[in-house]
Lab assay of single mutants.
Amino acid sequence: MQRVNMIMAESPGLITICLLGYLLSAECTVFLDHENANKILNRPKRYNSGKLEEFVQGNLERECMEEKCSFEEAREVFENTERTTEFWKQYVDGDQCESNPCLNGGSCKDDINSYECWCPFGFEGKNCELDVTCNIKNGRCEQFCKNSADNKVVCSCTEGYRLAENQKSCEPAVPFPCGRVSVSQTSKLTRAETVFPDVDYVNSTEAETILDNITQSTQSFNDFTRVVGGEDAKPGQFPWQVVLNGKVDAFCGGSIVNEKWIVTAAHCVETGVKITVVAGEHNIEETEHTEQKRNVIRIIPHHNYNAAINKYNHDIALLELDEPLVLNSYVTPICIADKEYTNIFLKFGSGYVSGWGRVFHKGRSALVLQYLRVPLVDRATCLRSTKFTIYNNMFCAGFHEGGRDSCQGDSGGPHVTEVEGTSFLTGIISWGEECAMKGKYGIYTKVSRYVNWIKEKTKLT
């Protein structure tokens, strides 16, 4: 034993070699072989497995989906700052455009905790909710729209109204504003409101030439003092309507412009014939205590009207009353817009006519005020429907199939267009061939041609 100890002390290297040989010859039971080890760690190889990531292109799944990435790591994937920024906006807080917040056709661009709407022409605001041009839906104005110097929408209202708090709607500024039905039992019968379409306001006024200088022999019209197929109006439903009495009662109609003036057809009036105007009328054979009678003290036909040349060209006249009318729910003026808007309103496509005229061709006159909704007829169809001249200051309205029309005794009465609950004068009943005849239409004086003249002559002093 002493000898062994001496050998170990003198030859430590020998001992180490012996131990190493023993270990190498022993069977290893701690580690699995290569094949079995792979069965336990069965993990798919990654895209760049075996390579240094710093030297390969980034992978979106590896960089940002398996674990949260930084902007720089995302930049490695896209290799483009702009594309990385677009991805980053949604990656950080989701897609803010998912709810489609942009209105009126706006395009949404996502941002971090926010979004941006790219608005089409005519709109602005956070969600493109603000109209900035009158060309689109009248700028959301209830009545009139004008573009300011910086191309912003400025709404306005006709006389007797003021802008509401929203700067879009119009509200009454006087007790009985024009064009409004205020009798409670008839307010439910107000005709369907007309909503502004998209309009090209630059070209809204037709490029028409008034044929002022045409000389033409007097034409022989049949029954051209021209509501057939209409309905009984309720008291106060058309408070701007008046009836004219002269040699015979209810020979023509008219509309209240203001307390002192009536507008009617020029062919209705004769110099030297006494005319009485009755406002607030409903049943011409009954006294309903809503009527107001006034005498006409002055007749002003349009300066281009000449019955000797043509009885229905420039067929418009103004009547001055001896005493002002007292405005109330049964006696209310009709609204008159400017030339541009009167023309736009007419193009809405349908209007209402009213009167006490004959209820059928050569038949009896109506006792109760009649009204009828009539569609506008395109000019080409209008011209083809008659052998008589249709001037540019006239328009056609009615039904091709016949059966409904204005008729004798309705002449001078109103053709009105309702705009968001307020009625505007767009025409004056003038003439036609018979009444409600198939293929024939009622012919009306186009008020847009005469609004400046009306307003100039009827100013209240």
Rank of each mutant, 00 (worst) to 15 (best):
F123K: 11
A317N: 00
F121Q: 14
K68P: 05
E401S: 10
G363A: 07
K137M: 14
V269P: 03
E86C: 04
G13P: 14
V296I: 06
R140T: 06
N127G: 05
A366K: 11
E79T: 08
Q219E: 08
T426V: 01
E142R: 05
Y115A: 03
F176E: 03
E72G: 06
N203T: 14
K188G: 14
S406K: 12
Q370C: 05
H303T: 09
V202E: 13
K293F: 12
V377Y: 03
A307Y: 08
F238Y: 04
V447E: 00
F31Y: 14
Y201D: 11
W240D: 00
T417D: 03
V326K: 10
D200P: 12
P414I: 15
P301V: 11
Q370P: 03
T218V: 09
E320M: 05
F176M: 05
Q96S: 13
V278A: 06
C18D: 02
P175K: 11
G254P: 01
T417M: 04
G402D: 10
T85Y: 08
N36A: 12
I40V: 12
E281I: 15
G246I: 05
K51R: 10
T381Y: 09
C178D: 01
I316P: 01
K234P: 06
E82S: 08
H302E: 02
G439F: 04
C335L: 00
G355T: 07
S350Q: 13
S11L: 12
P197H: 14
Q219V: 12
S448H: 07
M6P: 06
R46F: 01
K45I: 02
L103T: 12
K455P: 01
E159I: 08
N151C: 05
K109Y: 07
N36I: 10
S107M: 09
S148L: 12
T218K: 10
V181S: 10
E165N: 13
K440W: 04
T458F: 01
T215E: 06
A26M: 10
Y352S: 09
V353E: 01
E401A: 15
Q2S: 08
D110V: 07
C18G: 10
E159Y: 08
E82D: 15
V257W: 01
N127C: 04
K311S: 06
V263Y: 01
R83Q: 13
H314G: 04
P12F: 15
L14G: 05
R373G: 05
G280F: 02
K89F: 06
F238T: 04
S204V: 15
G421P: 02
H361M: 11
L103A: 06
W118T: 15
V326C: 07
T426Q: 00
K168M: 13
T445V: 10
R46C: 00
K347G: 12
I284Q: 07
L23Y: 12
E72I: 06
I256M: 03
R384L: 09
H361T: 14
W261I: 02
